[in-house]
Amino acid sequence: MTAPLEIEGPAAPPRSNGELVFAEPWESRAFGMAVALYEAGAFTWPQFRSELIARIAAWEISGAADEPYNYYRLWLAALEEVLAGLCAVSTDEVTTRARALAGRPEGHDHRH
């Protein structure tokens, strides 16, 4: 089973010459996590797609001039919401983990 990624439209991931584009390593990890969880049957693609489109639409409506558009931030927020809705993870768990990761020293990775 492969995630049915859209080529065009609001849910379509950024591409260059047909290839997916990731500006930061975390973006590819968030992408891979969502696809892997979908392929494992954790949620349906329409569930995720609907949440992603809703997140994008909310960002557009908000006119968040102070927050630049970042597809993968919205992708990650959609994933978190879907998983929280399925009670696979709580919002508090996500917040706690995000704070812990944000507090790590710059350049920290898992290759020790």
Results as ranks from 00 to 15, higher is better:
M1Q: 13
M1N: 15
M1R: 13
M1H: 13
T2G: 00
A3Y: 05
A3F: 10
I7F: 14
I7E: 14
E8P: 03
P10G: 02
P10C: 03
A11Q: 01
A12H: 10
A12G: 08
S16N: 15
N17G: 15
N17W: 13
E19Q: 15
E19C: 14
S28M: 10
R29C: 12
R29A: 14
A30G: 14
M33P: 07
M33D: 11
A34K: 00
A34M: 09
V35C: 12
V35R: 06
V35N: 05
A36G: 15
A36T: 02
Y38C: 05
E39P: 02
G41C: 07
A42E: 11
F43L: 02
F43W: 00
T44A: 04
P46Q: 05
Q47K: 02
F48M: 05
R49C: 00
S50K: 04
E51V: 05
L52G: 04
I56V: 03
I56A: 02
A57C: 05
A58S: 12
W59M: 06
W59Q: 08
E60N: 09
I61K: 11
I61F: 11
S62P: 02
A64Y: 06
A65V: 13
D66Q: 12
P68T: 11
P68V: 15
P68I: 07
Y69Q: 07
N70W: 13
Y71W: 09
W75S: 02
L76F: 08
A77R: 02
A78H: 03
V82M: 01
V82D: 03
V82E: 06
L83I: 05
A84W: 04
G85N: 03
G85M: 00
L86S: 12
L86V: 04
A88W: 09
V89R: 04
S90E: 07
T91N: 08
T91M: 00
E93A: 14
T95Y: 05
T95D: 15
T96Y: 12
T96C: 06
R99P: 09
A100N: 12
A100E: 15
A102H: 14
P105D: 13
P105W: 11
P105G: 06
G107I: 08
H108K: 10
D109K: 00
D109T: 10
D109E: 08
D109Y: 15
H110Q: 09
